[in-house]
Nucleic acid binder design. Structure first.
Length: 477
RNA sequence: CGGGGUGUGGCUCAGUUUGGCUAGAGCACGCGGUUCGGGACCGCGAGGUCGGCGGUUCAAAUCCGCCCGCCCCGACCA
């Protein structure tokens, strides 16, 4: 139960976040450093994320499977860039059943290698393609600095792994799934995201090209909220994933991988939350409506409760909880459910029973502004409309916030300033050195080259050389 | 791994500087009662190897040494 006020966001955003995650009972610190326990309320949110994403994966033709947690060390070593990228953060099992293992086993940091191995066994002919498999699971990356949901040693995610006959098909798949992520983030999470291409230094270890959806958090820092990679034939060649084409010629497949993790819960928290606590988008909220009966004695209670029960039944299509705890006051419950981000609160007291109304409070508008009295008649429709309105207003608010913190600096000096409290959208020549200079000077990195941009010519904001593309520079999580 | 901070009931902390009675408070928890439309109140109660190990001392939460955890900042990252 939440008992105290949060540190305000503008005092210490990071502290606000930590307190919120604990007080809203989304997660807790585990006994092992850097690991978290996802608590039932947080997991319920993740289940809703899973459900809506999984539906989209099925619509785009994917099927689920499960691959093992342990991967032979030698598998990772087969793809040079891959092992170089991941080796510093591997957890490695060297003892099993009390005996030293002949070959160490890596706890998967991602599954390209083991899945590549299996695809090599399964794929023989062009008739076997494409292979469109997704897996829901956990992975381990031995991170040095951790933060609940955003970066923990172990995290939960889905990883899609596909194999295709042609480069074009694989490139299309990469973009299709990035689009699925963007659609999910925007329409389910109300988190506005920008789809774009990662720079060479920011791309996935082993990818030819990485793409991502990038979101702006409430402190203006960027959060990579989902990624989709075109892996070319890198893993196909490392694992000998070959097929016979229609001309009976042996060809390497083209593969992709794409993932979205429990980090997205962090994105939701830091996009929508306020000083009262969490604000959940109605479409993903485990509890969409909390119903609070108000009474001060048995007579009032017996008048109120039947109405509460009736309204609960009328609103059965929504995810609704009746908070009938007797040990805490209504005022406490208001704050408690606001901390947990429930989008709508309905209060039913003696006056409402008398007048045929309910008191309705929407989470996205704090205080009196968000509170109104509405008739009990037609409540289901009212509630449905309100939830849609909250969903839309959260997205609109986050989009306005983001857009008002994206700047187009005139020169490098201005860039170094704007990235302290926002993103810079500037021409970039594509040179690693320019990227590194910005990082060194400001801690801001390139986030992505957005897919949707006109091909225009400009001068690199750093070196002044000719540039064809604009990129977002931002401090990132 | 470098820098900084911190560790005392479940939580937040006081006590440590200057060693000395039975280690305290608030919140949370349990019981009883009064409350209940924006974080209620009263009474009673339970709960502690003072992060760990070692040392100094008649005596250590307090002084000394080593170790460990956690948080923040940096290098690495979904």
């Amino acid at each position: 139960m939440s008992d105290e006020k949060l540190t305000p966001r503008n005092v210490d955003f990071s502290e606000w976040y930590n307190q919120l995650v604990l007080k809203a009972e989304l997660a807790d610190y585990a006994p092992v450093r850097g690991c978290m326990v996802v608590r039932p309320y947080g997991w319920a949110l993740w289940e809703n994320i899973q459900a809506t994403l999984d539906k989209r994966f099925k619509v785009t033709g994917h099927v689920n499977a499960a691959f093992p947690l342990f991967i032979p060390m030698s598998f990772l070593e087969k793809e040079k860039a891959h092992v170089e990228g991941f080796s510093p953060e591997l957890a490695i099992v060297t003892i099993g059943g009390g005996e030293k293992l002949e070959e160490p086993l890596v706890v998967r940091p991602t599954s390209e290698t083991v899945i590549g191995h299996m695809y090599a066994k399964w794929i023989k002919s062009y008739r076997d393609l494409p292979v469109l498999i997704n897996q829901w699971g956990n992975v381990v990356r031995w991170e040095l600095r951790t933060k609940l949901f955003l970066r923990t040693l172990e995290f939960y995610w889905q990883e899609g792994h596909t194999a295709h006959a042609t480069e074009q098909e694989a490139r299309e798949e990469t973009r299709r799934m990035l689009g699925v992520y963007a659609d999910f983030a925007i329409n389910e999470g109300a988190v506005p995201v920008i789809q774009g291409i990662k720079s060479e230094t920011e791309k996935f270890a082993g990818a030819v090209q990485s793409t991502s959806i990038e979101a702006m958090m409430g402190d203006t820092r960027a959060l990579q909220s989902g990624t989709s990679h075109f892996l070319g034939q890198n893993f196909a060649k490392a694992f000998n994933i070959q097929y016979l084409d229609t001309n009976n010629t042996l060809q390497y497949v083209w593969t992709t991988s794409w993932g979205l993790s429990t980090r997205f819960i962090g994105a939701i928290i830091m996009t929508h939350g306020d000083d009262q606590g969490l604000i959940l988008p109605p479409r993903l909220a485990p509890i969409q409506i909390v119903l609070i009966p108000i009474y001060k004695n048995d007579a009032e209670r017996s008048a109120v409760m039947p109405v509460v029960e009736r309204i609960k039944a009328e609103l059965a299509e929504f995810r609704l909880k009746v908070d009938d705890r007797t040990e805490v006051t209504p005022g406490f419950k208001f704050n408690d459910w606001e901390m947990r981000g429930v989008p709508l609160r309905i209060e039913i007291g003696p006056k409402d029973v008398e007048k045929g109304t309910v008191a309705m409070a929407r989470r996205d508008k704090p205080g009196r502004e968000g509170k109104s009295f509405v008739p009990q008649a037609g409540l289901s429709r009212t509630v449905g409309m309100l939830l849609d309105e909250i969903q839309a207003s959260l997205l609109a608010r986050a989009t306005t916030f983001r857009d008002s913190h994206i700047f187009d600096p005139k020169d490098y000096a201005e860039l170094t300033e704007v990235v302290q409290n926002g993103w810079a959208y500037s021409y970039w020549c594509g040179d690693n050195e320019c990227e590194a200079k910005v990082k060194e000077d400001t801690k801001a990195t390139t986030r992505c080259i957005p897919l949707e941009q006109k091909e225009e010519k400009g001068k690199c904001i750093v070196c002044g050389k000719n540039a064809k593309r604009k990129v977002y520079f931002a401090r990132a999580y």
